[in-house]
């Protein structure tokens, strides 16, 4: 499988490492050159592309057209939303996005009703865990 990841932060770098270890082809787009170089050293592989992942040309260069999965995992919801918009417009790849504000989930899901974006909100996951902990019988 070919996975295109936007955002070379902690989540992006661990994801890349795990996916590469599982034998998948990965390209990771990161804006900050320094961060991208560090990632390459860590992964010992040339899988990073330095550029703005919210730019359609950069995503195309990263292989958007032939991607099976696109993961938008920058720390900013607005940037992840734009990655999803460009993906939905230019490819048939499955789209996975990270959101910080759980309220924003609806917006991501509304982009494509037939083939919705998979939205992951860590805030919501933690809230659920707390809720389960509080409500579970002792």
């Amino acid at each position: 499988m070919f996975v295109l990841i936007v955002g070379g932060g902690k989540v992006g770098s661990y994801l890349t490492r795990a996916l590469v270890a599982q034998g998948h082809e990965v390209v990771i787009v990161e804006k900050a050159e320094r961060k991208a170089r560090l990632l390459e050293q860590l992964l010992e592989r040339n899988v990073t592309l330095v550029g703005d992942g919210c730019d359609p040309l950069v995503l195309e260069q990263g292989g958007l057209k032939r991607a099976d999965v696109v993961i938008a995992d920058t720390g900013d919801d607005e940037d992840n939303l734009v990655v999803c918009l460009i993906t939905k417009k230019n490819s048939t790849a499955r789209c996975i996005a990270r959101v910080n504000n759980p309220r924003n989930k609806l917006i991501f899901e509304s982009l494509d009703e037939q083939n919705p974006v998979t939205v992951i909100s860590s805030t919501e996951v933690i809230l659920d865990a707390i809720h389960k902990h509080v409500t579970s019988p002792v």
């Binding site: 919210c54 900013d76 919801d77 607005e78 940037d79 939303l81 734009v82 918009l85 924003n104 609806l106 917006i107 509304s110």
Partner: peptide, 16 residues
């Protein structure tokens, strides 16, 4: 001053 913020705010206004 951010294009991405502007489109996101506009989508919230439109869809929610």
């Amino acid at each position: 001053n951010g294009d991405n913020r502007n489109v996101m705010a506009a989508l919230i206004a439109q869809r929610m």
